[in-house]
Design a protein around this nucleic acid. Structure first.
Lengths: 342, 342
DNA sequence: CTCCCGATTGTTATCGATAACATCAATTTA
DNA sequence: TAAATTGATGTTATCGATAACAATCGGGAG
């Protein structure tokens, strides 16, 4: 099965068949240099007949440039990151770039490994998700890099060439303002894996300090061991309501956890937002479609990916121009429609 | 920023510093051949001091083998495919393989482009999502390939070396049996983009023919233009209920669409499953956590990815062994818990 | 009639590694 | 003590392309 074709077709074979030099074939394939229309056609036909497929490894090695872009995100199956990734792809692919993906699972050691492996493929650029601690090994690799590096999911560029994403501090403040404006006093935060996800932590800390500025405290129920998902949100909310039955507002790390929390509140007969006001984060589609009472902060995830990718393209094209070093995504606090059910 | 290091560090520099030949360095780095412990240490130190990073392009070109695996799926942000991908990654990464991903968006032309581009990087293997039409160009590329190719998300291998996934015909039959066992007669199907997603189409056709065998018809409401998401499910369900108010059961293309449908039914005051029985597909986590009345068919998505990846590893290791050509994932019809709310 | 020019096409030297085989000294074996 | 073995390291020839420059040719300028 795997060794059907005895010999791979290279430029040499095509050149022989078209009766020209290797170089001519190379130029025709890439569409550079000036080659007569007639030769061009002959080469193309030969390549076609032989089923020639360029070897990009050789090409990139020789030209010292590649069209691959390395992307490292915490998790592929987390819809939030994969939507950012879709945005990246949407811009890069039409421009002839390939992306390859690594999953760090929020682990700095894995991230460092990935960075090393990916840099070894001489990518044209590197897109890293922000929001995690970066190991010394990673820092060293990044310092010695010979390609642009961009941070995703955080408007801070952390020393890289560009950063695209929301301001997480701003997000936390936004939630605080929302609660304060409604005169809520007993406020709680529910999250998970905050030691790993620094972006979430920043939102949390910002919420806390914004509330503190108004002399209001914050109860937090978090768990480092459980995933940032609906089931965990449900569990922790139950825990919260048992220990603090008089809570008036809860901010969840993300929408998935919020949805889990809502499901518990609903079953426990606790009115939302009558008795407890709930705010999530991200504005992901499913919770919105089922028309919950969930209020959330919408993040333009695809746009973040697209912006990062465009910034990269800019840097690759005009290396001289020094563009703005970051892009802060707009955040919108959206309130689910007012249907009572969820 | 981007040109900090004037000259890249190669084997030559490391060799010079450690006072050995290039070849010795190469062996130490890869951990092959027999090198004295002392030299080994000296080389490693030199590499470390210089911040040497191997160039995988050169390495793979020279050895004619790579550790990259190309994966093409319809969409990264569809949780179903990204969970399969996570499974693939979970197996391949610890074994030293890198994956790179392409998104076909169910478009055969894009898929062919991706296959070409990816093969040009001389991957060790190719993982393709099943369930879409394959263009003549793709077929030709696949015939000439020099690496194993595996089909994901379908137990049929479609002429490739292996196939891992559910039997979609079986899934359709399962749903039919479920409805028939309950004596339901007026049955409907709600889906989208069936012309693109052949897997979904196969489920649909299988449902239809299984029902037909029991002399029961199937009303179908589908749309080719809208995405396979919750909002579409909601919309089409509304349409369905207007034209066929007496429907007793609905099977949705996937859980997301089912969730949208449930939300409409709930708001319209239609009891589920009292008046209408609803079955989705996939067993994705969010709908389950919110404790709907949604019945669905659970697919082991990560396991599918893992199995495909393991099959690939097997083929790469013992090229001689001819393993089974496919793996059929088990399907489970699960019923949401019995809470009345959704 | 000679020279220069621009459009084409070819030559040569890498790119940064690895495979395969060659060396050479230190042991071991007969 | 000579021959065979083993371990450690080096040589040479690719891998499949591209960059940079050289060569060739027909035609208009001087």
């Amino acid at each position: 099965m795997r060794q059907k074709r005895a010999k791979t077709v290279t430029l040499v074979e095509v050149a022989a068949r078209a009766d020209v030099s290797r170089m001519t074939v190379s130029k025709v394939i890439r569409g550079v240099g000036s080659i007569s229309e007639e030769t061009r056609a002959r080469v193309r036909r030969a390549a076609d007949e032989l089923g020639y497929l360029p070897n990009s490894l050789a090409g990139s090695l020789s030209s010292r440039k590649s069209r691959m872009v390395a992307v490292i995100i915490p998790s592929i199956s987390d819809i939030v990151f994969s939507e950012v990734l879709s945005g990246v792809n949407a811009v890069l692919r039409p421009n002839g770039y390939q992306t390859f993906i690594g999953e760090s699972h929020f682990d700095p050691v894995v991230e460092a490994d990935l960075i090393r492996e990916m840099l070894s493929f001489q990518p044209a650029g590197l897109l890293l998700n922000g929001g995690m601690e970066r190991s010394a090994a990673s820092m060293r690799l990044l310092e010695n890099r010979s390609c642009p590096a961009i941070q995703l999911w955080d408007c801070d560029n952390s020393g890289l060439d560009f950063g695209a994403g929301p301001s997480h501090a701003e997000a936390g403040r936004l939630v605080a303002m929302h609660f304060l404006a409604r005169g809520l006093q007993r406020i709680a935060y529910v999250g998970a894996e905050l030691e790993k996800d620094l972006c979430a932590r920043r939102r949390y800390l910002s919420l806390q300090s914004s509330l503190a500025a108004a002399d209001i405290g914050l109860v937090s129920v978090t768990c480092e061991r459980k995933p940032r998902q609906a089931a965990t949100g449900r569990l922790l909310t139950e825990q919260l309501m048992r220990t603090h039955p008089d809570v008036q507002a809860i901010h969840f790390l993300n929408d998935a956890m919020a949805l889990g929390g809502l499901s518990y509140l609903h079953e426990a007969g606790i009115a939302v937002p009558g008795q407890v006001s709930v705010v999530g984060f991200n504005g992901t589609s499913i919770p919105n479609t089922v028309r919950t009472r969930l209020t959330t902060i919408d993040t333009p995830r695809e746009a973040i990916g697209e912006t990062a990718a465009r910034a990269l393209l800019d840097m690759l094209r005009n290396a001289n121009v020094n563009p703005s070093r970051s892009w802060q995504a707009a955040l919108h606090l959206v309130q689910g429609n007012t249907t009572e059910k969820f």
